[in-house]
Nucleic acid binder design. Structure first.
Length: 911
RNA sequence: GCCGGAGUGAUGAAAUUGGUAACCAUGCACGACUCAAAAUCGUGUGCCGUAAGGCUUGGGAGUUCAAGUCUCCCCUCCGGCACCA
């Protein structure tokens, strides 16, 4: 009588029906509010879909399906990111053309994705290698060229000798090629570069507006690496030359300028060649430079490596703050590409400078005094008797420690700290209204913790202030102590700095920079985006090189520049792409002067096409524009973006950069592309080890779908653990979700029109609606499934279920198990698609039952629980609690000191 | 070194945000059905203890009637950056 749950039959049946009825087709324009739910589209590898993909796609699919049922117009598309090295390598290895490989792989991916029942609108499928698509990638490049954001450069770049192509900084892992692990070399060559650093500040500040995981935002902040400092010029003197050379340094600590005792230039610094004649030991300098050229970046930057360098004899630099003549060195610890490639060295307040100074026996001059809660700062204008009073105050020892400074006193903190502060407040200082908050630990006077408060006070005679800089979390005791033998790299109070003595580091930065004739400057760690690859399988860069006209952009009307077919697409390794050999294609007429010219043969990196693909889904067939303004305005930005963390500092930075550029030229209406981002946790192999072909522990989704069904796989992947957390695959545990679905299936015959609904079942039902809806919204799919399991267990206890309740339950389940619920929905006599139904809404009045369970604690331990009507008042609940036998046993004859009632939850009795 | 995230039963994990730690699921044990096994169903299952009871969220302190959750110190693991001045 009951038909069995045959997942194969059901799943293929409903996939056909959905396709026939075009249920997943998205309306372009609608009165409904929109919701754009996007997966990071796959790179269609030869391996097919893996369990990591399916976890992402299931999550976004569950979310999309609920949003649709909640009445939103949902855009949920997918496509293929198919240009780039892996596809090309795969093609070379399998001796087929990359485009054939892409076709083969995407067909496989598409079929696998369909077999999982994802609700993608396949009519919007895009492929970055499609000329109709990459026409617009090239178009965007031309726009960047036009705005000066794309340019040719000849700087040495990272070159992977194995992949035979130049790479961007983002393509490295450590100092190796991210793809193949080969150590990269520095190779000077012509290349195309995008000025991403022009957007560094906006890429940074935009992060604050995004609902992204903190870890990703932090990774991007680190990657961009903003540091605020100053450019300061040192006059350079040499015996042979007149006093007109200048060495500009970048420093984040202009406040330590008085402590600069030497300067260091990177061995690659351009001024060195100009100074050749003035440098007395040029041969030594040259030898050092040669040595550095041979070393890899890794060797140069190895941790714990001893400092090396060479002093430039005959050259000195003048400290603009105090006029001191300083020696100048070249050393490899200064990097050519950061700041100005030269530094002022302050050995007293920088660990690297300190190491170098120790080794070369250079002066170390302390100019920053650490601050702590032990410091009292009294400004110069303080009347003498006040200082006297301070010094003589009771048990608090106030000692002048350096007469030269004239205004620093240590306050050794005693148990009379409070009195001392009271005295300060009364006699010397008037506090601001609230006085801030400070507190002291009474049993250890040294552990006094202050918040940062300043008392600024005017007395008749002058101004005094008690500044308390507090002790920051985690600052060890040593740093607070004044200890000249240790170097101090933090902020503090200036000493030995002429008229700047006594000023806080933070305040001194600007003042000293101005004093030294420098200027404040912000630098970034982010490097320009090296945008050309000497490989075949990428978008041709749409420019023409003409001897007469130089670089000429391909006219827009001639786009796309189609990637030609070639016989041999292996990289040449010469720095030319394989396209250089296709004479028919390379040789063209200059669009400007019609003379003979050549096409650019470099191609774009893999990341180009994925930097804007999400916009194309909005308007995938548009021939006249990247995206229509009207549609873009409706759909953009992406509301929910789901994918892996590996894209934190690659795709997600590049896409934000492109998007901001497109915003600037008016293509898009909003400055950030992805409002909310969710990261999937890794799916590890059984036992928590990484899945890999080599270990043979890769789970193939096809097999799982075959044995358990797509619905079970979907439920399992959502139930296996928190979405954003890594979890090990466990085939044994898959039986749980399968049993769950079987139980739902077997419940169908229990549906009766006259079924009785108890109040507690009704409550459970509404609680489940609430929980599942909220959990899906928050991407807490595991607890959503758990919630449904709990409710199912309730349903199993009763004789019969109403149709309404069962249908409601199926609706909650359908995002997770769309095929099975569709079948059950139709079995109930419905001829609509459950997919088109409305999401259940809970009744707030029904989510609380009229009974409540109260726990009773005696001295913090739970000793009894009881149930009582929700309407019962506090006093009565307390009385009931105290009369519980278990409670009486533990309270005994004692009179309770205190009885606390936490509404609807517990009674806490203190004896 | 700096920054971010995490640490809870045998296992995946949950905890209404300070209020009964371990929901749900897997596994395991026992039982029912079966000639038998699988499947299914039922009962039990944090640790110590026969029990009464005690202990338990990486470790240590603290605040509180009450701490997985808040504060301080420390340890371990994962991730980002790192001779970036």
């Amino acid at each position: 009588m009951t038909k069995s749950y045959d997942h194969k039959k059901i799943e293929s049946k409903w996939r056909r029906e959905w396709e026939k009825a075009e249920v997943f087709k998205t309306a372009d324009v609608s009165d409904k509010p929109k919701c754009y739910v996007l997966d990071m589209f796959p790179y269609p590898s030869g391996e097919g879909l893996h369990t990591g993909h399916t976890r992402i796609y299931t999550a976004s699919d569950v979310y999309s399906r609920m949003k649709r049922m909640q009445g939103l117009n949902v855009l949920h598309p997918t496509g293929w990111d198919a240009f780039g090295l892996p596809a090309e390598q795969y093609a070379i290895k399998n001796k087929i053309h990359p485009s054939a490989a892409v076709k083969k792989n995407t067909d496989r991916f598409r079929e696998q994705m369909k077999s999982l029942g994802f609700s993608y609108d396949w009519e919007r499928e895009i492929n970055t290698t499609d000329k109709k698509y990459y026409k617009w990638t090239q178009w965007a490049f031309l726009k960047m060229l036009e705005k000066g954001l794309a340019y040719e450069s000849y700087e040495p770049i990272n070159w992977c000798p194995s992949c035979k192509t130049g790479l961007a900084n983002e393509d490295l892992e450590g100092n190796a090629c991210e793809r193949c692990g080969t150590t990269v070399e520095k190779k000077p060559m012509r290349q195309w570069v995008l000025r991403i650093t022009d957007y560094a500040d906006r890429l940074l500040s935009g992060l604050d507006t995004l609902n992204w995981p903190e870890s990703i935002k932090e990774a991007q902040r680190n990657w961009i690496g903003k540091s605020e400092g100053a450019l300061i010029k040192f006059k350079v003197k040499s015996k042979k030359k007149k006093d007109d050379d200048e060495l500009e340094v970048f420093t984040t600590r202009p406040d330590t300028l008085f402590g600069a005792t030497y300067c260091v230039m990177s061995p690659e610094h351009k001024l060195l060649d100009e100074w050749k004649d003035s440098i007395e030991n040029w041969s030594e300098v040259e030898a050092y430079r040669e040595e550095m050229k041979k070393k890899t970046e890794i060797e140069r930057t190895a941790e714990g490596k001893e400092k090396t360098g060479v002093r430039l004899l005959g050259i000195t630099a003048k400290n603009p703050a105090n006029g001191e003549e300083l020696p100048v060195f070249i050393a490899d610890y200064v990097l050519a590409h950061y700041g100005t490639g030269a530094i002022m060295a302050v050995p007293a307040h920088d660990t690297r400078d300190y190491e170098f100074a120790k080794k070369f026996g250079l002066n170390i001059k302390k100019v920053i005094q650490p601050l702590s809660s032990k410091w009292l700062i009294v400004e110069k204008s303080l009347p003498a008797e006040c200082v006297q009073n301070l010094i003589t105050f009771g048990d608090v020892e106030v000692k002048e420690i350096d007469k030269d400074w004239g205004k620093f006193f240590t306050v050794s903190i005693s148990e009379k700290e409070d009195e001392f502060i009271d005295w300060l407040k009364k006699n010397l200082l008037k506090t601001s209204d609230d006085g801030g908050s400070w507190y002291a630990n009474s049993d250890d006077s040294r552990k006094v913790v202050f918040s940062e408060i300043e008392f600024d006070v005017s007395t008749d005679e002058g101004i005094a202030s008690y500044k308390d800089y507090g002790r920051k979390k985690g600052v060890p005791e040593e740093e607070l102590d004044v200890d000249d033998s240790k170097i101090f790299i933090g902020y503090g109070i200036l000493v030995n700095s002429g008229k700047f003595d006594g000023i806080k580091s933070e305040d001194a930065k600007k003042a000293i920079t101005e004093f030294a004739g420098g200027k404040l400057k912000t630098t970034y760690r982010l490097r320009e985006w090296v945008f050309s690859r000497q490989r075949y399988w990428g978008e041709p860069i749409p420019v023409i090189h003409c001897e007469r006209c130089g670089v000429v952009p391909v006219p827009e009307k001639d786009l796309p520049v189609i990637l030609p077919d070639v016989e041999f697409y292996e990289p040449s390794g010469t720095g030319e792409s394989p396209l250089a050999n296709i004479h028919d294609w390379v040789n063209v007429k200059c669009p400007v002067c019609r003379s003979d010219a050549k096409r650019e043969t470099n191609t774009m990196p893999q990341w180009a096409g994925s930097s804007w693909y999400y916009l194309r889904f909005i308007d995938p067939r548009n021939q006249d524009a990247l995206v229509s303004k009207e549609k873009e305005k409706y759909w953009s930005p992406v509301d929910m973006y789901v994918g892996g963390v590996e894209h934190a500092t690659r795709h997600l930075i590049y896409a934000r950069f492109w998007h901001k550029f497109l915003f600037d030229i008016g293509v898009v209406n909003y400055e950030e592309p992805f409002i909310q981002l969710k990261n999937v946790g890794l799916v590890l192999g059984e036992g928590g080890i990484k899945m890999s072909k080599r270990l043979g522990n890769v789970i193939n989704p096809d097999t799982v779908v075959e044995i358990y069904g797509a619905d079970t796989l979907r439920v399992y992947e959502m139930f296996m653990g928190p979405f954003e957390q890594s979890t090990a695959w466990n085939t044994e545990s898959m039986i749980g979700p399968r049993r769950f679905l079987e139980k739902v299936w077997k419940l169908a015959p229990k549906v009766k029109s006259d079924a009785l609904v108890t109040a507690s079942l009704e409550t459970a039902y509404h609680q489940t609606i609430k929980r599942v809806s909220e959990n899906i919204e928050d991407f807490k799919f595991n607890t959503a499934v758990s919630g449904m399991m709990i409710f199912l267990n309730e349903l199993e206890k009763v004789e019969s279920v109403t149709k309404e309740m069962y249908e409601g339950f199926l609706k909650l389940l359908t995002p997770f198990a769309p095929h099975m619920t569709e079948e059950l929905w139709h079995d109930l006599g419905n001829d609509t698609f459950i997919y088109h139904e409305t999401w259940p809404i809970f009744d707030p009045s029904k989510i609380v039952s009229d009974r409540m369970a109260i726990a009773v604690q005696v001295n913090g331990k739970v000793r009894a629980t009881f149930e009582i009507g929700r309407e019962i008042g506090e006093e009565e609940v307390k009385m009931t609690a105290l009369t519980q036998p278990e409670v009486r046993k533990w309270v005994g004859e004692n009179q309770p000191k205190k009885v606390i009632y936490v509404k609807d939850k517990l009674v806490s009795v203190v004896v």
